[in-house]
Amino acid sequence: GGHPVTTQMVETVQNLAPNLHPEQIRYSLENTGSVEETVERYLRGDEFSFPP
């Protein structure tokens, strides 16, 4: 991942996926670069990993 992630982006995802840890959200956003894509992954039931 190398996309810039803002606190705003993390908070937006958190509102839609409250049971995800912020670190999981941030890591996913760094890989996708997209709030929409991260939320899609969540709704699909994809696994969210923590940063290594």
Rank of each mutant, 00 (worst) to 15 (best):
N19F: 10
L43G: 06
N15C: 10
G45L: 01
G2W: 14
Q8Y: 11
V13L: 04
L16M: 12
L20I: 03
Q24I: 03
G1N: 13
H21W: 07
S49D: 14
T38M: 01
S28Q: 06
P18S: 07
N31I: 15
R41P: 03
T7P: 15
V5E: 04
G45N: 05
H3A: 10
L43E: 09
G45Y: 00
Q8H: 12
T32Q: 02
Q24A: 05
H3L: 11
E37A: 12
F50I: 04
E36R: 12
G33V: 03
Q24E: 04
R44V: 06
S34A: 04
A17P: 00
L16E: 05
P18L: 07
V5F: 10
R26F: 08
E23T: 08
P52E: 09
Y27V: 08
P22M: 10
G45M: 03
T32V: 03
E23C: 11
E23V: 07
E30D: 06
N15T: 13
G33C: 07
T32W: 06
T12L: 15
L43M: 12
T6F: 07
N19A: 11
E36D: 12
P4M: 14
N15L: 15
S28D: 11
R44L: 08
G33Y: 06
S49H: 13
H3C: 09
L16Q: 09
G33F: 07
R44N: 12
S34P: 00
V10P: 02
M9Q: 08
L43I: 10
V13N: 00
R44S: 08
G2C: 13
Q24F: 01
A17I: 13
I25E: 03
M9F: 02
H21K: 10
R44D: 06
S34Q: 02
V35H: 01
E37D: 10
T38G: 00
H21Y: 07
E40N: 15
P22C: 07
T38E: 01
G45W: 01
L16D: 04
L29R: 00
T32F: 05
G33N: 07
E36K: 11
Q8N: 10
L43P: 02
E37Y: 06
Q14N: 07
V10Q: 06
H21C: 09
P52D: 09
Y42H: 04
N19D: 15
E47F: 13
S49A: 15
E40V: 11
Q14Y: 09
V39H: 05
L20S: 01
R41D: 05
R26S: 06
E47V: 14
T38C: 04
Q24D: 01
R44A: 12
S34F: 03
T32L: 05
N15Y: 13
G2P: 15
G1F: 13
L29H: 02
P52Q: 08
F50T: 03
R41V: 06
E37Q: 09
I25H: 00
L43S: 07
T12C: 09
R41W: 05
S28L: 07
I25L: 00
E40L: 14
P18I: 08
T6P: 05
V10R: 03
S34Y: 01
T12F: 15
R44G: 06
V5G: 03
G45P: 01
E11L: 14
H3G: 10
P22W: 12
L43Q: 11
E30A: 12
I25C: 03
G45S: 02
S34G: 04
R26E: 06
V5T: 06
P4G: 12
H3N: 11
S34L: 03
N19H: 11
G45A: 03
A17D: 02
V39E: 04
E47D: 13
E47M: 12
L43V: 09
F48W: 00
T7K: 12
R41I: 09
T6W: 07
S28I: 04
